[in-house]
């Protein structure tokens, strides 16, 4: 993923419980509103953040959500990063398949979140997982 210019310092939320997931998605929504994303774009971004935040909590044992407004060639958007130090995802390709689930989910967390945003990047290894997403305003 390209390194985009950030419009403001990143805001962070540490996620260790399901109430932190709510806090994290509220942070993302506030940033998205401030950047002028349309309601539909906001909803898609916040829903993706909710899926990825929950994944991070359930499978990664919690972690940190970092979000910032970004811009590129006149476009404005929101960048969000989810970092955990969990066991990692053994097969990322497989985990991105619709319907694939390692637990009791519906298998839509990663693949669904990817569809809801414009850019999606995942790095995973034994030391943890990082997911980065960007949703553009237009």
């Amino acid at each position: 993923m390209k390194q985009y210019a950030t419009g403001a310092p990143a805001e962070t939320v540490a996620v260790t419980s399901s109430s932190d997931v709510v806090t994290a998605r509220q942070m993302v929504r506030t940033l998205a509103q401030r950047s002028g994303l349309s309601l539909v774009h906001q909803t898609k971004l916040v829903t993706a953040a909710s899926e990825l935040g929950r994944n991070m909590l359930v499978y990664g044992g919690g972690g940190v959500v970092r979000a910032a407004p970004v811009s590129d060639e006149g476009r404005r958007g929101i960048f969000v990063e989810f970092t955990d130090e969990g066991p990692g995802i053994p097969d990322v390709e497989l985990a991105l398949t619709d319907g694939w689930t390692s637990g009791n989910g519906m298998g839509l967390g990663l693949s669904g979140a990817k569809r809801l945003v414009d850019e999606f990047e995942i790095e995973s290894g034994p030391g943890g997982t990082t997911v980065r997403i960007v949703k553009w305003g237009r």
Binding site: L39, V40, Q42, T43, K44, T47, E51, D98, M106, L108, S111, G112, A113, R115, L116
Partner: peptide, 14 residues
């Protein structure tokens, strides 16, 4: 259900 929520749900795959 709000329209934006419905659109998001479908894209999510639900």
């Amino acid at each position: 259900m709000r329209p934006a929520v419905a659109m998001t749900l479908v894209e999510l795959g639900l």
